[in-house]
Computed example of a mutant assay.
Amino acid sequence: MNTQNTMTIDGHRAVITFDPEIQMFRGEFLELNGGADFYAKDVRGLQREGKISLQVFLDACAEDGVEPRKSFSGKFSLRVDPSIHQAAAIAAAASGKSLNQWAEEVLRQAALA
């Protein structure tokens, strides 16, 4: 996985962005089944606050009997410009794959690189 702008805390990945209005970094755990975000001015603070936010979220899930991780079906809709659709279909056919197989390969390379 591309680690740019991400941080792993206790096995959970968070995306890190900078909020210029408050001059702080924001972390958000995106693989969770609800909101668990945290703020800090530096990496050490992000790690500390992320652990706290994650634990509060996991405790609340356990208390309520809720699965903390999002589930993904493996299906999603994608809208693109018709010229991109055409080019992707041609690229897929040229590589001997269905458009779905080709798109999955391209997405895997981009997301897990």
Rank of each mutant, 00 (worst) to 15 (best):
N2C: 12
A87K: 10
C61Y: 00
S98A: 05
I84W: 07
I52M: 06
T3M: 07
A36E: 03
T6L: 09
F76Q: 13
A103C: 11
I9E: 01
I84M: 08
K70R: 11
L78C: 08
E104H: 12
F76R: 13
G50W: 00
A40K: 07
M24Y: 02
R26A: 10
H85K: 15
A40C: 02
I52G: 05
I90P: 04
G50Q: 00
G34N: 04
G96H: 04
N100S: 11
G45N: 00
E67S: 08
S71G: 12
Q4C: 08
K51F: 04
H85C: 13
A40W: 10
L32P: 03
P20W: 01
L58Y: 02
M7T: 02
S73G: 06
K51N: 09
F29G: 03
L32R: 00
A110W: 14
A36V: 00
S71L: 09
L58V: 06
R44M: 15
G96Q: 05
C61V: 04
F29P: 04
A93H: 07
Q86W: 04
F18H: 11
E21F: 15
D64Q: 13
M24I: 07
E104K: 09
G50V: 05
N5P: 13
F25W: 12
D59N: 14
D10S: 08
P68S: 04
